[in-house]
Design a protein around this nucleic acid. Structure first.
Length: 897
RNA sequence: GGGCGCGUAGCUCAGCGGGAGAGCACCUCGCUUACACCGAGGGGGUCCCAGGUUCGAAUCCUGGCGCGCCCACCA
């Protein structure tokens, strides 16, 4: 449990059971600090393994220690926090496991940049000192992202915070590496890898995205050795010809078949290389002949393997050409390209140059042009791991939301390639493999070995490479819970309930966690995967720090308040769509926070003499009605959350608080609250308090701070925090005739307001309303409410036909007469009625056609036909009534002229 | 070259087989002792186009057009 130190909050406000008033404005910043600390001090974020309640667990996608919060994090972690708080309020034992990722390349690059400012490189320090330096950097700045998550309100179990290079997690990494190695799933091989010359490391496919470049296509003549003529090949990288070991044509290409098996002379270097045939050649492209450079092109590498061609490496790891490049040795790739092209031209071997915009891989971290390079690397064999992982999703053991992402997953997994897991970096998990200097074999063990496992020689040297960052991330769901030990945490919280993340790391991370979880835990790491939308800017561009576009969530949290930011992100988080986010959308969120605040202020101003202990009845119709509306909103919101429709959940709560509680209930409650009937006032006070508290609980997962701040001002809270509460039980449903009565009341008020609005009547102008005697009972029951909400002066009731002047039909099924001396009324009303009649005619015609259509009657479902009949009857009655009223008004208008 | 998604009110988007919706913006009226970050009211849409299926299509199918994204060895 959390250390329970008494806090100022404990003594100051929490024990105060009395009602307080709220200041005019909600001050977000102090409230955020105050309540986050209070929750922490009460240990409310902590999940105990001894808690018998049903459990709910998530692991946070660990942000980079170098990182700072961006909107994508803000969205993802808001949604996770929303789920965590929601599940707690439902009475579950919730673990939200937090932590950070060491982020190999990113972090190393950051520290190297620091060094560069002092004119140093990591090599000046040496490995050990450099790694120490990175740890130091991490100690100094690594907490920033965590502080930002806390500022966002994330209710992670910080006592369990992990870092991917913690001793425990490092042990898990070693354990996994060693086991996979001995299972034959990790191996070492020579392979053509994507190499970043700047970072001096291999990159995975995923780390080397394609970016467009304005390249050129060079056509080069390769003269035949035994005769006249030449083969023309085209390339975008002419310098690679220095490493060519063949020219390839399509085996069924009649233009070139007679050349297969002959030899051509490599331009500039003069080596003789064979002409080979392979179906990979595209006959349509260029001349139909292609140079083959197995050591520097992925496609050529494959062909080279197939045909047994030598792979001639011409590149050093620093991106300069080596001795194999002959006179070009020592040049970097771009210099070499210029020189090669110039020399080709001089020798008359350049057959043409044309512009050729295309896409080539760049380093994800530093944007340097990636070079394919032949080297020895460690690989993980993926196919055997992928098979059960595909099955796990196919069988529904893991479900993606939205489900369409499963296709993306399947497509990648079914075409999966072995994973190059080694990186030539210093910051990361050093590969636990030692090479023997005397026998050359590898010793792979969890504990550092003393001698070679094969020949017992003591001359062993540890592999200098570290593992790809994603290697440790893949273990995150179980390594954070204590694996490889069999811990209570692991037993209770694994598999986790849900993982929430972005689609762009489905391959990097989600797929690999599923594979590793299945392999080492024998079970999936999570039951559900929620893939959230991508946050873009207003123009639909991806937020990008490097391009300088983006909104810093910390900035807008300071301006609009964290609750407003959380609310806005949640309400935009619709499924299957990107979020376009401009700062102005936050105004809506802030307005809603303010609205809630003001509703609470109103409640507190009117709760002055309220005694929470006093017994109270069930209240009046308005009270019972608003309770049921709260229940409906809660049910809708929770159903939406269960389906990960976050925006719908937010929408349901918004509609309730603003559209029902504030717009209707509070207005209807005012007379009772301010009246002299003590019993009625107490009942209304109680309802107001209960419904407000209900709204606070309902909204707490999205807007934890303002709801807690308000809650702490309410009477009767007994020193408790809102966060440790639970959702209210449902109130009894309204009887059908009560529901109808409320509907009628709302319709009357709306209709009168409409007339007032259309005529532009100021509130100071009273109107007189008339009702038929049949409605008298209902209207009289709600006379005060109607009068308050419509500004009507007096109500009266008449038996029989109302005077023709101003009667209007209501949805409630009876006429209400608005009596006005205003001459505009007649013409406005005429105009309106004409439009109403027109719409009615149109609707009626549509329904009528349907009902006259024998095929409709024959083939449509019975209930549909019945509904249409009913609709037709209703429309017809309305049309008749409207037409009649219109006729009468026209008569009056005529008379008035 | 494959695959996925999206085109609905000025903007951002819901709706995905039975009478076109929300928020914002806009217009009118209103500082009514919770709230002008507000209240009341209003206007505004060949639901991208063309075919088809159906009694009935914004909603399903096919084909266009436009815009995104992902995957891929056209050098």
């Amino acid at each position: 449990m959390a250390p329970r130190r008494p806090s100022p909050i404990d003594s100051a406000s929490l024990s105060d059971a009395g009602t307080r008033t709220l200041p005019t404005r909600f001050e977000a910043a102090p409230a955020e600090a105050r309540w986050y600390r209070a929750w922490l001090e009460r240990g409310l974020f902590h999940a105990s393994v001894d808690d018998p309640r049903p459990r709910f667990s998530m692991v946070i996608p660990p942000p980079n220690v170098t990182g700072s919060l961006h909107l994508g994090h803000a969205l993802n972690n808001t949604l996770q926090d929303l789920l965590a708080r929601h599940k707690r309020l439902q009475g579950m034992n919730v673990l939200w496991m937090p932590g950070t990722d060491h982020a190999g390349i990113s972090t190393q690059v950051v520290v190297e940049r620091e060094l560069a400012k002092q004119g140093k490189t990591r090599h000046d320090l040496g490995r050990e000192a450099f790694v120490d330096q990175v740890w130091e950097w991490k100690a100094r700045y690594g907490a920033r992202i965590v502080q930002q998550l806390q500022a966002l309100g994330c209710s992670c179990d910080w006592q369990r915070e992990r870092f991917t290079m913690d001793p425990g997690l490092s042990r898990a990494v070693r354990e996994v590496f060693v086991r996979l190695y001995h299972e034959g799933l990790i191996y070492r091989a020579e392979y053509l890898v994507s190499w970043c010359p700047r970072c001096s490391t291999v990159l995975s496919d995923l780390e080397s995205p394609f970016r467009p470049v304005a390249g050129k296509l060079y056509a080069i003549r390769y003269p035949l050795v035994d005769g006249e003529g030449a083969l023309v090949v085209e390339t975008t990288r002419p310098e690679t010809l220095l490493g060519d070991t063949a020219v390839a044509v399509h085996p069924e290409d009649p233009r070139w078949s007679r050349f297969v098996g002959r030899r051509v002379r490599l331009p500039l270097l003069g080596r003789e290389i064979p002409v080979v045939a392979d179906p990979f050649v595209d006959r349509e492209f260029g001349s139909g002949a292609v140079k083959v450079t197995p050591a520097h092109d992925p496609a050529d590498f494959e062909v080279g393997r197939r045909l047994g061609l030598p792979a001639l490496n011409i590149l050093e790891p620093d991106g300069r050409l080596n001795a194999n490049a002959g006179p070009y040795a020592g040049l970097d790739v771009m210099e070499a390209r210029r020189r090669v092209v110039a020399d080709l031209e001089a020798e008359g071997l350049l057959a043409g140059v044309k512009d050729h915009p295309h896409e080539v891989p760049h380093c994800d971290r530093c944007d340097t042009l990636v070079q394919p390079l032949l080297s020895e690397q460690w690989f993980m064999r993926m196919e055997p791991l992928a098979r059960p992982a595909i099955e796990a999703v196919r069988s529904g053991r893991v479900v993606f939301h939205p489900k369409s992402w499963e296709n993306t997953y399947f497509h990648w997994m079914e075409n999966i390639r072995d994973w190059a897991i080694s990186r030539q970096l210093w910051w990361g998990h050093r590969i636990p493999a030692w090479r023997c200097a005397s026998c050359g074999e590898w010793t792979v063990t969890v504990e550092d070995p003393e001698r070679c496992a094969h020949c017992a020689s003591g001359a062993i040297v540890q592999e200098s490479d570290v593992l790809d960052t994603w290697f440790s991330s893949a273990l995150w769901p179980f390594s954070t819970l204590g694996w490889p030990d069999d811990t209570p945490e692991l037993r209770l919280f694994y598999p986790t309930s849900v993982l929430s993340t972005a689609f762009d790391i489905i391959f990097f991370w989600v797929a690999r966690m599923i594979m590793m979880g299945l392999h080492f835990m024998g079970d999936v790491p999570f039951r559900e995967v929620y893939i959230h939308a991508l946050v873009r800017d207003e123009k639909g561009r991806k937020f990008s720090k490097s391009k300088g576009i983006g909104i810093d969530p910390m900035d807008v949290m300071a301006v609009y308040g964290t609750d407003a930011v959380r609310w806005t992100l949640t309400s935009l988080a619709a499924q299957g769509r990107d979020i376009r986010f401009g700062e102005h959308v936050l105004e809506g969120g802030r307005a809603f926070v303010t609205k809630l605040w003001n509703a609470a202020r109103f409640a507190l101003l009117n709760l002055g003499d309220f005694d929470p202990q006093a017994p109270a009845g069930s209240g009046g119709l308005y009270d019972r009605w608003i309770r049921t509306r709260l229940d409906v909103a809660l049910a809708e919101a929770h159903a939406a959350l269960d389906a990960y429709r976050f925006s719908d959940a937010a929408g349901a709560l918004y509609a309730f608080v603003w559209g029902e509680l504030c717009d209707w209930y509070i207005e209807l409650a005012k007379p009772a609250l301010q009246g002299s009937d003590n019993a009625a006032r107490r009942a209304t006070q109680r309802t107001l308090l209960e419904v407000l508290a209900g709204a606070l609980v309902a909204l707490h997962p999205v807007m934890p701070f303002v709801t807690e701040e308000i809650f702490q001002a309410l009477p009767g809270r007994d020193g408790r925090l809102l966060m440790e509460g639970h959702y209210p039980a449902a109130a009894p449903a309204l009887a059908a005739e009560e529901a109808a009565e409320m509907e009628a009341l709302l319709a009357i008020v709306s209709r009168v307001r409409q007339v007032r609005g259309e005529l532009g009547l100021p509130p100071s102008q009273r109107v007189r309303l008339g009702f038929p005697a049949a409605a008298a009972e209902l209207v009289r029951r709600h006379e005060v409410g109607i009068r308050t909400l419509t500004g009507a002066g007096e109500l009266h009731f008449e038996a029989g036909e109302a005077p023709a002047t101003a009667a209007v039909t209501l949805a409630a099924g009876f006429a209400v007469r608005i009596e006005l001396d205003d001459p505009r009324f007649l013409s406005e009303e005429l105009r309106r009625l004409e439009k109403v009649l027109q719409n009615l005619e149109k609707d009626l015609e549509g329904v009528g056609k349907k009902l006259e259509n024998p095929k409709f009657l024959e083939r449509a479902r019975e209930d549909v036909v019945a509904a249409e009949r009913e609709k037709h009857a209703r429309l017809a009655a309305e049309r008749a009534a409207t037409a009649e009223r219109l006729a009468r008004l026209r008569g009056l208008e005529g008379a008035a002229r």
